[in-house]
Amino acid sequence: MLPQDDMTDEMKSLASRLEDTTQAFYDLALIVYNLEDTTPSDAIPESLDTLIRDLKSLPDISRKVNNLIPQDVLEYIEQGRNPDVYARQFSELVQKDNQYVNGKLYAIEGFQKAFAEEIKQAYPEVSSVVDKILNEGKVESTVS
């Protein structure tokens, strides 16, 4: 889940109401499970009213929250899996892809240098142009 510091008031309100709704579901299930002759006759209607009231208020609160959630996370939750596991796997995947792209950059940069050296050997008259191009590349790298 998101760290508390990153949550806005609307998000906190939504999270709190979601917990209340979940609790209402749980309470209703508990009452039905423990149904006995001594159970008050209005227990189930009251639980249902509470549940419906919570569900009814969710759309109003969620309209104020603009955060987007990836579809993968929703599917993960639908499958009954922990979204924190998704977050960890995603960060590992990002790190792996990042290293792969980093390796690609190093390979192409090395080829650029080797290519520049070969051109200088074969065509000494254009050495200054080659150096200029290499420096432009460095400047661009620095900027980005």
Binding site: Q95, Q99, L105
Partner: peptide, 18 residues
């Protein structure tokens, strides 16, 4: 070159493999 290079870890990272 784009299909035969290795992973290059950034500072503070451990090298990964696939």
């Amino acid at each position: 070159l784009s299909s035969h290079h290795d992973f290059v870890p950034l500072p503070g990272q451990e090298k990964v493999s696939d």
